[in-house]
Nucleic acid binder design. Structure first.
Lengths: 186, 186
DNA sequence: TATGGTCTAGACTGATTGGTCCAATAATGA
DNA sequence: TCATTATTGGACCAATCAGTCTAGACCATA
């Protein structure tokens, strides 16, 4: 599955995703990345002329693509929309438990703490919502657009909750939060 | 209302809250804080012997206290629990629109990106949930404990959403998200 | 007015930062 | 084979980092 001999450029991006997602842009040094990627400085500035900022942008886009993959693999085999949502949360909870950098939501560490301008980060997050909405349409969910927005707002909150509690449970149980005992009076 | 002649120590903490909450611990330099607080280096290390980390801890605790204040002022005059929740979101939305550092949720920038250990950050967030739950009990909300948890998980997600969209609307409309068209099958 | 503790002021330091540069090497195509 | 380009390796640099140190200002109380 994994590339047996990844190129230096790929190792750099991969290390960038791992470290930036875990510690944020300002919490990660170029030296950290070079050590993790086993690459010399010259290679970084050859492949990413603008250096750390360039790499962080590439890492953010790769992380976004990975999330689109997770969305697809969660909903594709699902029988209904809510079942897909449960599958997605379970997948993210497993990643949370297995890999340190998945303890942080990429939106926080990759999109908001780095060289991406706000609009670019918004576009990446929107692509996740769009993908989720498309799955909602395909699976005849009740209100695909608003539900996709609700799912991601709630999911990001639960992810933060899970991180500060050091426990994947809030992430795993996120679907339970999509209803509430109390309804706001219109 | 505001102290007319705040002490150097108070100016340092206040600048710490502002800058750390806006840019995070690693994105803020000691020099930035000293400039904002109009204080010399000697004063910082006199009042906070461990320097930046000490100040960040104090800032996180102050920010947490400010949030407890906001919770109290939102729910105290409310007639019912959901009304108080709406008031709280409106207050946070106004702050979001008026002051740059309120664009970021303190949980993200103060509790998770800094010298606080995870457990201490969890304790601070828990104090917000406890305060909200107490208001739920007082106002006879339907399920104070679980609703307080739901409110904060959803609120943090909406806050992140608002930040990346550059618009307070998701924060202001958060109460609408507490119900969802679709209910997960038990 | 003396005295002693608190606080301010900022020069200074060593480590680390992100980034530049160029020689050496590997890969590519004529 | 040779020439050209792509890539690597790492020494080097200026800027910035957090933190130390000490001289003196300030402010109580005696």
């Amino acid at each position: 599955m994994a590339d047996p001999t990844p190129s230096t450029r790929d190792r750099l991006i991969h290390s960038g995703v791992t470290l930036f997602q875990e510690r944020g842009f300002h919490g990660t040094s170029v030296a950290d990345i070079l050590t993790a990627a086993q690459a010399p400085k010259g290679s970084l500035y050859h492949h990413f002329p603008a250096g750390k900022a360039d790499l962080a942008r590439a890492a953010a886009h790769l992380a976004s693509d990975l999330m689109l993959d997770i969305i697809a693999r969660a909903y594709d085999p699902a029988e209904d929309f809510s079942g897909g949502t449960v599958r997605m949360c379970e997948k993210l909870a497993r990643l949370f438990e297995r890999q340190a950098h998945w303890r942080a939501c990429p939106v926080q560490t990759l999109f908001l703490d780095g060289p991406l301008d706000r609009a670019e980060g918004e576009r990446l997050l929107q692509s996740w919502i769009d993908a989720t909405q498309a799955q909602g349409l395909r699976l005849h969910g009740p209100a695909p657009l608003t539900d996709a927005q609700r799912i991601w707002a709630t999911l990001i909150g639960c992810w933060t909750f899970a991180r500060i509690r050091g426990d994947a449970a809030p992430l795993r149980n996120m679907p339970d939060l999509l209803t509430l005992g109390e309804t706001r009076s219109a």
